[in-house]
Amino acid sequence: MATDVHGPVSPKTADSASTAAVRVAGLTRSFGGRAVIDGLELTVRPGEFVALLGRSGCGKSTLLRVLAGLDREIEGEVSVPRRSAVAFQAPRLMPWKKVWRNVLLGLPGRPEREVAERALGEVGLSHRTDAWPKTLSGGEAQRASLARALVREPDLLLLDEPFGALDALTRIKAQRLVAELWRRRGCAVLLVTHDVEEALLLADRVLVMDEGVIAYETAIDLPRPRDIASPRFAALRARLLDRLGVEGPADDSLADGPAGGGLADAA
């Protein structure tokens, strides 16, 4: 998949592949004179799972759109793998194409139906191959969207709050699925989220974006699979919430479960 040169964004050459999957230097993106991203620096190693946290409107989704090649009015340097794929918050399946055709959409050549079936099998959707998107549940649609991203065999998977619209139980399942797919595929993942626990459950490294730059970052060296109830997890969560500007007492109300970490309302 060609996420190719956009503006100053250059596709990574093979020899630099070993050093970084994503390299961003001095990235600035302004809307009407206001810099939403302001001289941002970011490097993601191949195979690394990075979560990007931040309040609503901090520019994290803008950054993801830039990396996806959907926003090219930028200054600075951005290099991403040629093969990258996006899963959006809304599944964005074409309603007029059956699930398997959605999965194959945009693939070069004339891919066989089996290719889609394999990808759908990987996300546990083999039984919905021939379904219309309108008949899928929210979780199923999101998994179809994941299959559509994975079938491109990306070196970089960009996830834009993909679990935001799912109910708590479906979200836990979807998070586990993403963790497993990442482990199996070994691609770099950039997960944009406002859910601190989700970030802590999945990522090798958590970044906090504020005022257009990466304001804080921390490596998460908890053993996998991670336990929300462990004291170290709780300590990390408290630290990140603090960084995000959420006061201490609010922490209790957010500690109920994985679905409770939403910051959009709190912040």
């Binding site: 998949m1 794929a85 959006f88 809304a90 964005r92 074409m94 693939l107 559509r148």
Partner: peptide, 27 residues
């Protein structure tokens, strides 16, 4: 526009977008 954007991110070119996204959407 979100579907058009999704099509772009999937690597569809101008003609691909018209054929797979715009025209079916206008049906």
């Amino acid at each position: 526009a979100q579907l058009v954007e999704a099509g772009t991110s999937l690597g569809l070119g101008r003609w691909g977008l018209i054929r797979h996204v715009v025209l079916p959407g206008a049906l």
